[in-house]
Design a protein around this nucleic acid. Structure first.
Lengths: 237, 237
DNA sequence: GAGTCGCCTTGATCGAGATCAAGGTTTTGC
DNA sequence: GCAAAACCTTGATCTCGATCAAGGCGACTC
Protein backbone atom coordinates (compact mmCIF):
# COMPACT_ATOMS: atom_id res chain seq x y z
CA UNK A 1 0.00 0.00 0.00
CA UNK A 2 2.88 2.36 0.70
CA UNK A 3 4.24 1.33 -2.68
CA UNK A 4 0.94 2.12 -4.35
CA UNK A 5 0.81 5.49 -2.65
CA UNK A 6 4.23 6.31 -4.04
CA UNK A 7 3.18 5.40 -7.55
CA UNK A 8 0.09 7.56 -7.23
CA UNK A 9 2.11 10.50 -6.03
CA UNK A 10 4.44 10.15 -8.96
CA UNK A 11 1.64 9.74 -11.52
CA UNK A 12 -0.79 12.48 -10.63
CA UNK A 13 -0.84 15.72 -8.74
CA UNK A 14 -2.02 15.48 -5.19
CA UNK A 15 -5.64 16.14 -4.31
CA UNK A 16 -4.98 15.41 -0.74
CA UNK A 17 -2.68 12.62 0.22
CA UNK A 18 -5.30 10.34 1.73
CA UNK A 19 -7.76 10.70 -1.11
CA UNK A 20 -5.16 9.97 -3.64
CA UNK A 21 -3.60 7.04 -1.91
CA UNK A 22 -6.92 5.25 -1.57
CA UNK A 23 -8.67 6.50 -4.69
CA UNK A 24 -11.45 7.39 -2.31
CA UNK A 25 -14.91 8.47 -3.22
CA UNK A 26 -14.94 9.95 -6.67
CA UNK A 27 -11.23 10.44 -7.18
CA UNK A 28 -10.82 7.27 -9.19
CA UNK A 29 -12.95 8.77 -11.94
CA UNK A 30 -10.65 11.66 -12.85
CA UNK A 31 -7.70 11.98 -15.19
CA UNK A 32 -4.43 13.67 -14.28
CA UNK A 33 -5.40 17.12 -15.54
CA UNK A 34 -8.69 17.07 -13.66
CA UNK A 35 -7.00 15.85 -10.51
CA UNK A 36 -4.65 18.81 -10.76
CA UNK A 37 -7.58 21.20 -10.90
CA UNK A 38 -9.25 19.48 -7.98
CA UNK A 39 -6.05 19.48 -5.98
CA UNK A 40 -5.89 23.26 -6.01
CA UNK A 41 -9.49 23.63 -4.94
CA UNK A 42 -9.65 20.87 -2.34
CA UNK A 43 -9.24 21.24 1.38
CA UNK A 44 -8.86 18.70 4.12
CA UNK A 45 -10.90 18.86 7.31
CA UNK A 46 -10.86 16.99 10.57
CA UNK A 47 -14.21 17.03 12.30
CA UNK A 48 -14.67 15.79 15.89
CA UNK A 49 -17.43 13.34 16.82
CA UNK A 50 -20.77 14.99 17.45
CA UNK A 51 -20.30 17.88 15.02
CA UNK A 52 -23.06 18.66 12.58
CA UNK A 53 -21.85 18.75 9.00
CA UNK A 54 -23.44 21.84 7.43
CA UNK A 55 -24.96 21.47 3.98
CA UNK A 56 -22.79 24.26 2.60
CA UNK A 57 -22.93 23.12 -0.99
CA UNK A 58 -19.54 21.44 -1.01
CA UNK A 59 -18.85 17.85 -1.93
CA UNK A 60 -16.52 15.70 0.15
CA UNK A 61 -14.79 12.40 0.15
CA UNK A 62 -15.22 10.77 3.55
CA UNK A 63 -11.70 9.57 4.31
CA UNK A 64 -12.34 8.05 7.72
CA UNK A 65 -15.06 7.87 10.30
CA UNK A 66 -18.83 7.46 10.24
CA UNK A 67 -21.56 10.01 9.54
CA UNK A 68 -25.25 9.66 10.37
CA UNK A 69 -28.17 11.23 8.50
CA UNK A 70 -31.26 12.07 10.55
CA UNK A 71 -34.85 13.18 9.98
CA UNK A 72 -36.83 14.61 12.86
CA UNK A 73 -40.55 14.75 13.46
CA UNK A 74 -42.00 17.96 14.82
CA UNK A 75 -42.12 16.76 18.42
CA UNK A 76 -38.51 15.65 18.45
CA UNK A 77 -38.88 11.99 17.61
CA UNK A 78 -35.82 11.09 15.58
CA UNK A 79 -35.12 8.64 12.80
CA UNK A 80 -31.69 7.92 11.42
CA UNK A 81 -32.21 7.48 7.68
CA UNK A 82 -28.72 6.52 6.64
CA UNK A 83 -25.03 6.24 7.39
CA UNK A 84 -21.93 7.13 5.49
CA UNK A 85 -18.84 5.05 6.03
CA UNK A 86 -15.42 5.80 4.53
CA UNK A 87 -14.78 5.95 1.60
CA UNK A 88 -18.23 7.30 0.72
CA UNK A 89 -18.80 10.48 -1.21
CA UNK A 90 -20.89 13.13 0.58
CA UNK A 91 -22.92 15.96 -0.81
CA UNK A 92 -26.12 16.66 -2.65
CA UNK A 93 -26.23 17.94 -6.22
CA UNK A 94 -29.67 19.59 -5.92
CA UNK A 95 -31.71 21.10 -3.16
CA UNK A 96 -33.52 18.70 -0.88
CA UNK A 97 -37.14 19.45 -0.07
CA UNK A 98 -37.00 18.28 3.49
CA UNK A 99 -34.23 18.89 5.92
CA UNK A 100 -31.91 16.00 6.61
CA UNK A 101 -29.13 16.67 9.10
CA UNK A 102 -25.72 15.05 8.80
CA UNK A 103 -23.64 14.55 11.93
CA UNK A 104 -20.25 12.99 12.58
CA UNK A 105 -20.64 9.92 14.80
CA UNK A 106 -16.92 9.43 15.19
CA UNK A 107 -14.04 11.75 14.45
CA UNK A 108 -14.20 12.27 10.73
CA UNK A 109 -11.70 13.26 8.06
CA UNK A 110 -13.00 14.90 4.92
CA UNK A 111 -11.53 16.07 1.67
CA UNK A 112 -13.84 18.77 0.34
CA UNK A 113 -14.36 20.29 -3.10
CA UNK A 114 -16.38 23.37 -4.07
CA UNK A 115 -19.67 22.43 -5.67
CA UNK A 116 -19.06 24.59 -8.74
CA UNK A 117 -15.98 22.66 -9.78
CA UNK A 118 -17.59 19.26 -9.51
CA UNK A 119 -20.71 20.45 -11.30
CA UNK A 120 -18.68 21.88 -14.14
CA UNK A 121 -16.69 18.69 -14.46
CA UNK A 122 -19.89 16.67 -14.41
CA UNK A 123 -21.10 18.65 -17.41
CA UNK A 124 -18.07 17.89 -19.53
CA UNK A 125 -17.64 14.35 -18.27
CA UNK A 126 -20.54 11.93 -18.54
CA UNK A 127 -18.56 9.32 -16.64
CA UNK A 128 -18.71 11.44 -13.50
CA UNK A 129 -22.45 11.95 -13.81
CA UNK A 130 -22.92 8.21 -14.16
CA UNK A 131 -20.82 7.63 -11.06
CA UNK A 132 -22.88 10.09 -9.02
CA UNK A 133 -26.03 8.41 -10.27
CA UNK A 134 -24.68 5.00 -9.35
CA UNK A 135 -23.84 6.19 -5.83
CA UNK A 136 -27.31 7.64 -5.44
CA UNK A 137 -28.98 4.46 -6.66
CA UNK A 138 -26.99 2.47 -4.12
CA UNK A 139 -28.18 4.80 -1.38
CA UNK A 140 -31.72 4.33 -2.64
CA UNK A 141 -31.36 0.54 -2.49
CA UNK A 142 -30.06 0.77 1.04
CA UNK A 143 -32.87 3.08 2.10
CA UNK A 144 -35.40 0.62 0.70
CA UNK A 145 -33.77 -2.30 2.47
CA UNK A 146 -34.15 -0.42 5.72
CA UNK A 147 -37.73 0.45 4.89
CA UNK A 148 -38.42 -3.28 4.73
CA UNK A 149 -36.61 -3.76 8.03
CA UNK A 150 -38.42 -0.89 9.75
CA UNK A 151 -41.81 -1.94 8.51
CA UNK A 152 -41.69 -5.69 8.72
CA UNK A 153 -38.86 -7.04 10.87
CA UNK A 154 -39.05 -7.94 14.54
CA UNK A 155 -36.81 -6.21 17.09
CA UNK A 156 -34.30 -9.05 17.12
CA UNK A 157 -34.16 -9.24 13.34
CA UNK A 158 -33.57 -5.50 13.22
CA UNK A 159 -30.68 -5.68 15.66
CA UNK A 160 -29.13 -8.64 13.85
CA UNK A 161 -29.45 -6.85 10.51
CA UNK A 162 -27.86 -3.75 11.97
CA UNK A 163 -24.86 -5.61 13.36
CA UNK A 164 -24.41 -7.29 10.02
CA UNK A 165 -24.46 -3.95 8.23
CA UNK A 166 -21.76 -2.54 10.49
CA UNK A 167 -19.67 -5.69 10.13
CA UNK A 168 -19.92 -5.55 6.35
CA UNK A 169 -18.92 -1.91 6.26
CA UNK A 170 -16.02 -2.51 8.59
CA UNK A 171 -14.56 -5.11 6.28
CA UNK A 172 -16.39 -5.40 2.98
CA UNK A 173 -14.21 -8.25 1.77
CA UNK A 174 -14.58 -10.38 4.89
CA UNK A 175 -15.37 -14.05 4.43
CA UNK A 176 -18.86 -14.75 5.84
CA UNK A 177 -17.80 -17.93 7.65
CA UNK A 178 -14.80 -16.57 9.55
CA UNK A 179 -14.82 -14.66 12.86
CA UNK A 180 -14.79 -10.88 12.87
CA UNK A 181 -14.79 -8.16 15.47
CA UNK A 182 -15.58 -4.49 15.11
CA UNK A 183 -16.45 -1.31 16.97
CA UNK A 184 -19.98 0.01 17.05
CA UNK A 185 -19.56 3.67 16.20
CA UNK A 186 -22.96 4.46 17.76
CA UNK A 187 -24.53 4.80 21.17
CA UNK A 188 -27.54 2.66 22.06
CA UNK A 189 -29.67 5.74 21.45
CA UNK A 190 -28.40 6.02 17.89
CA UNK A 191 -28.98 2.33 17.24
CA UNK A 192 -32.52 2.70 18.57
CA UNK A 193 -33.15 5.77 16.42
CA UNK A 194 -31.97 3.86 13.40
CA UNK A 195 -34.03 0.73 14.05
CA UNK A 196 -37.22 2.41 15.22
CA UNK A 197 -36.87 0.90 18.71
CA UNK A 198 -36.14 2.12 22.24
CA UNK A 199 -32.71 1.86 23.85
CA UNK A 200 -34.06 -0.68 26.33
CA UNK A 201 -35.18 -2.99 23.57
CA UNK A 202 -31.85 -2.64 21.77
CA UNK A 203 -30.03 -3.45 24.97
CA UNK A 204 -32.21 -6.49 25.66
CA UNK A 205 -31.82 -7.85 22.14
CA UNK A 206 -28.05 -7.44 22.29
CA UNK A 207 -28.05 -9.27 25.61
CA UNK A 208 -30.13 -12.03 24.12
CA UNK A 209 -27.77 -12.40 21.14
CA UNK A 210 -24.92 -12.59 23.64
CA UNK A 211 -26.54 -15.32 25.74
CA UNK A 212 -27.38 -17.14 22.48
CA UNK A 213 -23.68 -17.20 21.76
CA UNK A 214 -24.22 -15.40 18.46
CA UNK A 215 -22.16 -12.38 19.51
CA UNK A 216 -19.63 -11.46 22.18
CA UNK A 217 -19.89 -8.01 23.71
CA UNK A 218 -16.36 -7.05 24.63
CA UNK A 219 -16.63 -3.45 25.68
CA UNK A 220 -20.15 -2.03 25.11
CA UNK A 221 -18.93 -0.65 21.85
CA UNK A 222 -16.89 -3.62 20.68
CA UNK A 223 -18.61 -6.67 19.24
CA UNK A 224 -17.13 -9.89 17.98
CA UNK A 225 -18.82 -12.58 15.93
CA UNK A 226 -17.99 -16.22 15.42
CA UNK A 227 -19.28 -15.76 11.88
CA UNK A 228 -21.40 -13.37 9.91
CA UNK A 229 -23.33 -16.33 8.52
CA UNK A 230 -24.75 -17.00 11.98
CA UNK A 231 -26.16 -13.48 12.12
CA UNK A 232 -27.49 -13.70 8.60
CA UNK A 233 -29.78 -16.50 9.73
CA UNK A 234 -31.37 -14.13 12.19
CA UNK A 235 -32.00 -11.29 9.79
CA UNK A 236 -35.27 -12.45 8.32
CA UNK A 237 -34.12 -11.91 4.73
CA UNK B 1 -53.92 22.30 -23.06
CA UNK B 2 -55.31 21.14 -26.39
CA UNK B 3 -53.65 24.18 -27.91
CA UNK B 4 -50.35 23.23 -26.33
CA UNK B 5 -50.70 19.71 -27.62
CA UNK B 6 -51.14 21.03 -31.14
CA UNK B 7 -48.07 23.20 -30.91
CA UNK B 8 -46.03 20.24 -29.68
CA UNK B 9 -47.19 18.05 -32.49
CA UNK B 10 -46.23 20.69 -35.02
CA UNK B 11 -42.83 21.36 -33.47
CA UNK B 12 -41.41 17.92 -32.92
CA UNK B 13 -41.79 14.42 -34.24
CA UNK B 14 -44.02 12.17 -32.22
CA UNK B 15 -42.59 9.88 -29.57
CA UNK B 16 -45.98 8.67 -28.68
CA UNK B 17 -48.86 11.06 -28.64
CA UNK B 18 -49.46 10.99 -24.91
CA UNK B 19 -45.83 11.47 -23.98
CA UNK B 20 -45.44 14.34 -26.27
CA UNK B 21 -48.61 16.14 -25.33
CA UNK B 22 -47.77 16.14 -21.67
CA UNK B 23 -44.00 16.36 -21.85
CA UNK B 24 -44.12 13.37 -19.57
CA UNK B 25 -41.24 11.86 -17.75
CA UNK B 26 -38.01 12.69 -19.49
CA UNK B 27 -39.37 13.88 -22.81
CA UNK B 28 -39.12 17.55 -21.89
CA UNK B 29 -35.34 17.24 -21.85
CA UNK B 30 -34.86 16.35 -25.51
CA UNK B 31 -34.48 18.45 -28.64
CA UNK B 32 -36.32 17.78 -31.89
CA UNK B 33 -33.63 15.57 -33.41
CA UNK B 34 -33.39 13.43 -30.32
CA UNK B 35 -37.15 13.13 -30.08
CA UNK B 36 -37.18 11.85 -33.64
CA UNK B 37 -34.71 9.13 -32.74
CA UNK B 38 -36.70 8.20 -29.66
CA UNK B 39 -39.94 8.18 -31.60
CA UNK B 40 -38.70 5.40 -33.87
CA UNK B 41 -37.52 3.30 -30.94
CA UNK B 42 -40.42 3.87 -28.57
CA UNK B 43 -43.39 1.62 -28.05
CA UNK B 44 -46.62 2.13 -26.15
CA UNK B 45 -47.96 -0.49 -23.75
CA UNK B 46 -51.17 -0.89 -21.82
CA UNK B 47 -50.74 -3.05 -18.75
CA UNK B 48 -53.69 -4.28 -16.68
CA UNK B 49 -53.81 -3.91 -12.91
CA UNK B 50 -51.98 -6.65 -11.06
CA UNK B 51 -49.35 -7.30 -13.73
CA UNK B 52 -45.72 -7.47 -12.69
CA UNK B 53 -43.55 -5.11 -14.70
CA UNK B 54 -40.44 -7.10 -15.61
CA UNK B 55 -37.08 -5.41 -15.20
CA UNK B 56 -36.21 -5.99 -18.85
CA UNK B 57 -33.72 -3.17 -19.10
CA UNK B 58 -36.07 -0.72 -20.80
CA UNK B 59 -36.94 2.74 -19.57
CA UNK B 60 -40.52 3.99 -19.61
CA UNK B 61 -42.57 7.08 -19.10
CA UNK B 62 -45.53 6.25 -16.90
CA UNK B 63 -48.39 7.93 -18.75
CA UNK B 64 -51.23 6.93 -16.44
CA UNK B 65 -51.86 4.67 -13.48
CA UNK B 66 -49.97 3.73 -10.35
CA UNK B 67 -47.10 1.27 -9.86
CA UNK B 68 -45.93 -0.21 -6.55
CA UNK B 69 -42.41 -1.33 -5.69
CA UNK B 70 -42.09 -4.17 -3.18
CA UNK B 71 -39.38 -5.93 -1.18
CA UNK B 72 -40.10 -9.30 0.39
CA UNK B 73 -38.56 -11.00 3.38
CA UNK B 74 -37.76 -14.68 3.11
CA UNK B 75 -40.91 -15.83 4.88
CA UNK B 76 -43.22 -13.78 2.70
CA UNK B 77 -43.60 -10.66 4.79
CA UNK B 78 -43.93 -7.82 2.35
CA UNK B 79 -42.98 -4.16 2.40
CA UNK B 80 -43.97 -1.68 -0.27
CA UNK B 81 -40.93 0.57 -0.66
CA UNK B 82 -42.29 3.08 -3.13
CA UNK B 83 -44.90 4.11 -5.63
CA UNK B 84 -44.75 5.58 -9.09
CA UNK B 85 -47.52 7.91 -10.18
CA UNK B 86 -47.87 9.36 -13.67
CA UNK B 87 -45.90 11.12 -15.06
CA UNK B 88 -42.92 9.40 -13.40
CA UNK B 89 -40.04 7.89 -15.28
CA UNK B 90 -39.43 4.19 -14.65
CA UNK B 91 -36.31 2.14 -15.05
CA UNK B 92 -32.97 1.55 -13.47
CA UNK B 93 -29.69 2.55 -15.09
CA UNK B 94 -27.56 -0.03 -13.23
CA UNK B 95 -28.10 -3.41 -11.72
CA UNK B 96 -29.75 -3.53 -8.32
CA UNK B 97 -28.21 -5.79 -5.70
CA UNK B 98 -31.46 -6.85 -4.15
CA UNK B 99 -34.59 -7.73 -5.97
CA UNK B 100 -37.34 -5.15 -5.97
CA UNK B 101 -40.50 -6.09 -7.79
CA UNK B 102 -42.62 -3.54 -9.65
CA UNK B 103 -46.32 -4.21 -10.11
CA UNK B 104 -49.14 -2.23 -11.70
CA UNK B 105 -51.72 -1.31 -9.05
CA UNK B 106 -54.15 0.12 -11.58
CA UNK B 107 -54.30 -0.23 -15.32
CA UNK B 108 -51.14 1.41 -16.53
CA UNK B 109 -50.06 3.04 -19.78
CA UNK B 110 -46.35 3.12 -20.57
CA UNK B 111 -44.19 4.58 -23.29
CA UNK B 112 -41.02 2.50 -23.37
CA UNK B 113 -37.54 3.11 -24.79
CA UNK B 114 -34.68 0.66 -25.18
CA UNK B 115 -32.02 1.15 -22.56
CA UNK B 116 -29.23 1.46 -25.09
CA UNK B 117 -30.69 4.55 -26.71
CA UNK B 118 -31.21 6.42 -23.46
CA UNK B 119 -27.77 5.44 -22.20
CA UNK B 120 -26.14 6.67 -25.41
CA UNK B 121 -28.02 9.94 -25.23
CA UNK B 122 -27.07 10.35 -21.59
CA UNK B 123 -23.42 10.13 -22.62
CA UNK B 124 -23.63 12.93 -25.14
CA UNK B 125 -26.07 15.02 -23.13
CA UNK B 126 -25.15 16.00 -19.57
CA UNK B 127 -28.58 17.56 -19.11
CA UNK B 128 -30.20 14.15 -19.32
CA UNK B 129 -27.83 12.67 -16.80
CA UNK B 130 -28.59 15.49 -14.40
CA UNK B 131 -32.30 14.91 -14.86
CA UNK B 132 -31.94 11.21 -14.07
CA UNK B 133 -29.89 12.08 -11.02
CA UNK B 134 -32.50 14.59 -9.88
CA UNK B 135 -35.26 12.00 -10.23
CA UNK B 136 -33.25 9.50 -8.24
CA UNK B 137 -32.51 12.02 -5.49
CA UNK B 138 -36.21 12.76 -5.21
CA UNK B 139 -36.92 9.07 -4.84
CA UNK B 140 -34.24 8.91 -2.16
CA UNK B 141 -35.83 11.81 -0.26
CA UNK B 142 -39.19 10.10 -0.42
CA UNK B 143 -37.75 6.80 0.76
CA UNK B 144 -36.17 8.58 3.72
CA UNK B 145 -39.41 10.34 4.59
CA UNK B 146 -41.08 6.97 4.74
CA UNK B 147 -38.25 5.55 6.82
CA UNK B 148 -39.04 8.23 9.39
CA UNK B 149 -42.73 7.35 9.18
CA UNK B 150 -42.14 3.59 9.46
CA UNK B 151 -39.72 3.94 12.34
CA UNK B 152 -41.24 6.68 14.42
CA UNK B 153 -44.86 7.47 13.57
CA UNK B 154 -47.94 6.01 15.25
CA UNK B 155 -50.50 4.05 13.25
CA UNK B 156 -52.84 7.02 12.90
CA UNK B 157 -50.02 9.34 11.83
CA UNK B 158 -48.96 6.78 9.25
CA UNK B 159 -52.45 6.54 7.78
CA UNK B 160 -52.87 10.32 7.72
CA UNK B 161 -49.47 10.74 6.01
CA UNK B 162 -50.39 8.12 3.46
CA UNK B 163 -53.70 9.76 2.56
CA UNK B 164 -51.91 13.06 2.20
CA UNK B 165 -49.34 11.53 -0.12
CA UNK B 166 -52.04 10.11 -2.38
CA UNK B 167 -53.95 13.41 -2.34
CA UNK B 168 -50.82 15.33 -3.31
CA UNK B 169 -50.01 12.98 -6.14
CA UNK B 170 -53.58 13.10 -7.40
CA UNK B 171 -53.44 16.86 -7.74
CA UNK B 172 -49.98 18.31 -7.06
CA UNK B 173 -51.17 21.90 -7.49
CA UNK B 174 -54.12 21.60 -5.15
CA UNK B 175 -54.61 24.36 -2.60
CA UNK B 176 -54.11 22.90 0.91
CA UNK B 177 -57.16 24.65 2.37
CA UNK B 178 -59.75 23.57 -0.19
CA UNK B 179 -61.67 20.27 -0.32
CA UNK B 180 -60.41 17.43 -2.46
CA UNK B 181 -61.51 13.91 -3.26
CA UNK B 182 -59.56 11.08 -4.81
CA UNK B 183 -59.46 7.35 -5.38
CA UNK B 184 -57.21 5.12 -3.36
CA UNK B 185 -55.51 2.97 -5.99
CA UNK B 186 -54.67 0.35 -3.33
CA UNK B 187 -56.38 -2.36 -1.34
CA UNK B 188 -56.21 -2.26 2.45
CA UNK B 189 -53.56 -4.98 2.21
CA UNK B 190 -51.37 -2.76 0.06
CA UNK B 191 -51.82 0.19 2.41
CA UNK B 192 -50.87 -2.03 5.33
CA UNK B 193 -47.82 -3.36 3.48
CA UNK B 194 -46.74 0.18 2.79
CA UNK B 195 -47.22 1.47 6.34
CA UNK B 196 -45.89 -1.56 8.19
CA UNK B 197 -49.29 -2.26 9.76
CA UNK B 198 -52.01 -4.92 9.50
CA UNK B 199 -55.13 -4.46 7.43
CA UNK B 200 -57.24 -4.41 10.60
CA UNK B 201 -55.28 -1.47 12.00
CA UNK B 202 -55.52 0.40 8.70
CA UNK B 203 -59.26 -0.18 8.63
CA UNK B 204 -59.69 0.97 12.21
CA UNK B 205 -57.62 4.13 11.70
CA UNK B 206 -59.59 5.02 8.58
CA UNK B 207 -62.80 4.52 10.54
CA UNK B 208 -61.49 6.75 13.28
CA UNK B 209 -60.55 9.50 10.83
CA UNK B 210 -64.06 9.21 9.41
CA UNK B 211 -65.76 9.53 12.80
CA UNK B 212 -63.40 12.45 13.56
CA UNK B 213 -64.82 14.16 10.52
CA UNK B 214 -61.36 14.48 8.99
CA UNK B 215 -62.21 12.31 5.98
CA UNK B 216 -65.30 10.98 4.23
CA UNK B 217 -65.17 7.43 2.93
CA UNK B 218 -67.41 7.39 -0.10
CA UNK B 219 -66.84 4.01 -1.59
CA UNK B 220 -64.07 2.08 0.20
CA UNK B 221 -61.69 3.26 -2.46
CA UNK B 222 -62.87 6.84 -2.73
CA UNK B 223 -61.92 9.37 -0.06
CA UNK B 224 -62.83 13.02 0.23
CA UNK B 225 -61.25 15.61 2.49
CA UNK B 226 -62.54 18.94 3.73
CA UNK B 227 -58.95 20.14 3.49
CA UNK B 228 -55.48 18.73 3.25
CA UNK B 229 -54.39 21.07 6.03
CA UNK B 230 -56.57 19.15 8.48
CA UNK B 231 -54.73 15.94 7.64
CA UNK B 232 -51.37 17.64 7.81
CA UNK B 233 -51.98 18.33 11.49
CA UNK B 234 -52.27 14.60 12.07
CA UNK B 235 -49.09 13.61 10.29
CA UNK B 236 -46.60 14.17 13.08
CA UNK B 237 -44.26 16.19 10.91
C1' DG C 1 -11.02 8.39 46.26
C1' DA C 2 -15.57 10.45 46.55
C1' DG C 3 -18.90 12.53 43.72
C1' DT C 4 -21.05 13.47 39.41
C1' DC C 5 -22.42 12.60 34.85
C1' DG C 6 -23.33 9.96 30.79
C1' DC C 7 -24.40 5.66 29.18
C1' DC C 8 -26.00 0.98 29.60
C1' DT C 9 -28.56 -3.04 31.64
C1' DT C 10 -32.24 -5.38 33.78
C1' DG C 11 -36.80 -5.88 35.91
C1' DA C 12 -41.87 -4.79 36.31
C1' DT C 13 -45.75 -3.14 34.18
C1' DC C 14 -48.42 -1.11 30.46
C1' DG C 15 -50.47 -0.31 26.02
C1' DA C 16 -50.54 0.15 20.86
C1' DG C 17 -51.10 -2.62 17.49
C1' DA C 18 -51.21 -7.74 16.20
C1' DT C 19 -53.86 -11.73 16.08
C1' DC C 20 -58.01 -14.37 16.21
C1' DA C 21 -62.75 -14.49 15.03
C1' DA C 22 -67.14 -13.33 13.02
C1' DG C 23 -69.89 -11.10 9.96
C1' DG C 24 -70.78 -7.48 6.30
C1' DT C 25 -70.20 -5.58 1.60
C1' DT C 26 -68.66 -5.42 -3.03
C1' DT C 27 -67.19 -7.74 -7.15
C1' DT C 28 -67.12 -11.55 -10.32
C1' DG C 29 -68.68 -15.29 -12.88
C1' DC C 30 -72.27 -18.04 -14.56
C1' DG D 1 -80.18 -12.84 -10.32
C1' DC D 2 -77.66 -15.93 -7.45
C1' DA D 3 -73.52 -18.01 -5.59
C1' DA D 4 -68.86 -17.70 -4.67
C1' DA D 5 -64.95 -15.18 -3.86
C1' DA D 6 -62.51 -11.23 -2.55
C1' DC D 7 -62.27 -7.55 0.29
C1' DC D 8 -63.43 -4.79 4.33
C1' DT D 9 -65.05 -3.76 9.16
C1' DT D 10 -65.58 -4.46 13.91
C1' DG D 11 -65.02 -6.84 18.34
C1' DA D 12 -62.27 -9.68 21.77
C1' DT D 13 -58.01 -10.97 23.28
C1' DC D 14 -53.05 -11.38 23.26
C1' DT D 15 -48.21 -10.06 22.71
C1' DC D 16 -44.20 -7.56 21.55
C1' DG D 17 -41.99 -3.76 22.42
C1' DA D 18 -42.72 0.77 25.07
C1' DT D 19 -42.60 2.90 29.36
C1' DC D 20 -41.43 3.38 34.10
C1' DA D 21 -38.07 2.48 37.54
C1' DA D 22 -33.81 1.17 39.75
C1' DG D 23 -29.22 0.28 39.78
C1' DG D 24 -24.41 -0.72 37.50
C1' DC D 25 -20.27 0.75 35.24
C1' DG D 26 -16.77 3.77 33.44
C1' DA D 27 -14.78 8.22 32.69
C1' DC D 28 -14.03 12.85 34.48
C1' DT D 29 -13.40 16.36 37.99
C1' DC D 30 -11.84 18.11 42.10
Amino acid sequence: MTARQDVQQADVPAICKSCEARQDGLCGAFNARQLAVLAKASSRHEVPAGTELPDDGTYSNLLSGVVKLTRNLSDGRQQIVGFHFAPDFLGRPFEAKKRIRAEALTNVALCSFPKAIIDRMANEMPELGRLLLKHTLNELDEARDWMAALGRKTASEKVASFLLMVARNTDPAHHPASPISFDLPLTRTDIADFLGLTIETVSRELSRLRSDGTIRIVNKRQISLASMAQLEERCGD
